[in-house]
């Protein structure tokens, strides 16, 4: 409807519509954080600095985007962080101890990750237990498997030596390589992150699956009543998160050529925090993939910016908490506006 067609759109329209964009808070935060670190550290705003903080943003961003989709669909996944470790361990173990080609080991890792995601989804949709509890169980079990299996196979808490495995060079170039742009080398992971964000945004905004994701997170009962296959949507979302964990876990394994058995623990909360900063409601039904990516950039900036300023890295945790609190408060305002009823 054009503005001329209804005079009431004009007055509250623009400000409120801007306010109701899920990404708005994250973009404001992005500008503020960049200004803060950029003003004090010339390195931070140089191309090398940008490449430096975009790298952690990329691996975190891939996860945050997948977790954001899942949260919009009304569920959590606490096992996503540990699953990056599981995927990496599978890839490295199979290709260094069992003679797998790296590509074949990656395929096996993907199958394992998707199976975990499917299991999460099936248990949550069948039992109707809160996904918080179900995936907390998965989290602990995977943590145990990661350590137990690694110790049993290698006698230590890490597996390494991926560099000597067949197919390592090509796989590494695709996932863990770098690209020169104007004399600065950027990690290839940044490209994957952009692709994942673009694909997720397209699915969310421009496909029926996207409509269904918003619907099952907003009101599952109503969505079912309108013929939305809610269980299938949720299982697919858990599997998407698992696939993202595989992508990130494999990327990190190829980059470092070894994997610690305790890798990824604690990361699941950072994914959720990034998604929340990006405008996702903890209650589901609302949020954005781009917002989650912006949230990840904020974390990348803070993570590296604190180092550039020569501060103790522990301050990052404080920053994490403060951002989460601010973002949740801002999101609550949005929800209140969107749900207010005028009778």
């Amino acid at each position: 409807m054009t503005a001329a067609a209804d005079e009431r759109v004009v007055r509250p329209g623009l400000a409120r519509r801007l306010l109701v964009r899920p990404e708005l808070g994250a973009v404001v935060g992005l500008v503020a954080v960049f200004a803060f670190f950029g003003a004090q550290s010339p390195v931070f705003r140089s191309p090398d600095g940008v490449a430096n903080w975009l790298d952690p943003a990329a691996t975190l961003g891939i996860m945050a985007v997948a977790v954001a989709l899942l949260m919009i669909g009304g569920e959590f996944d606490l096992s996503a962080g540990v699953l990056t470790g599981t995927s990496g361990l599978v890839v490295v173990t199979l290709s260094t101890r069992y003679g797998f080609d790296v590509w074949a080991a990656m395929a096996a890792g993907l199958v394992v990750a998707l199976a975990v995601g499917f299991a999460n989804g099936i248990v949550v949709t069948r039992t109707r237990l809160p996904s918080f509890v179900v995936t907390l169980g998965t989290f602990l079990m995977l943590q145990g498997i990661n350590l137990g299996a690694t110790k049993a196979i290698t006698g230590t808490v890490q597996v390494g030596g991926l560099r000597r495995a067949p197919g390592y060079e090509q796989a590494s170039a695709v996932l863990a390589g770098t690209v020169e742009i104007g004399g600065t080398s950027f990690r290839v992971a940044i490209l994957w992150w952009v692709l994942v964000t673009a694909a997720a945004t397209w699915v969310l905004m421009r496909t029926r699956a996207g409509n269904w994701i918003f619907a099952v997170g907003g009101d599952e009962r109503a969505a079912r009543a309108m013929g939305v296959p809610a269980a299938r949507v949720k299982i697919a979302l858990f599997m998407t998160t698992a696939a993202a964990a595989w992508l990130v876990g494999t990327t990190l394994a190829l980059r470092y050529t070894s994997v610690q058995a305790n890798v990824g623990i604690g990361q699941e909360f950072i994914y959720i925090v990034a998604a929340v900063i990006g405008g996702c409601l903890l209650t589901g039904g609302y949020g954005s993939a781009i917002g989650a990516s912006v949230g990840a950039v904020i974390f990348g900036m803070a993570d590296k910016g604190i180092v550039f300023l020569g501060w103790d890295a522990d301050w990052f945790k404080f920053f994490l908490g403060a951002m989460l609190l601010l973002a949740t408060l801002a999101n609550r305002l949005v929800r209140r506006y969107a749900e207010e009823v005028r009778r």
């Binding site: 918003f214 907003g218 009101d219 109503a222 039904g285 609302y286 969107a338």
Partner: peptide, 8 residues
Amino acid sequence: DLAMIPLM
């Protein structure tokens, strides 16, 4: 109850 999603 109309089966509508308030946030959409």
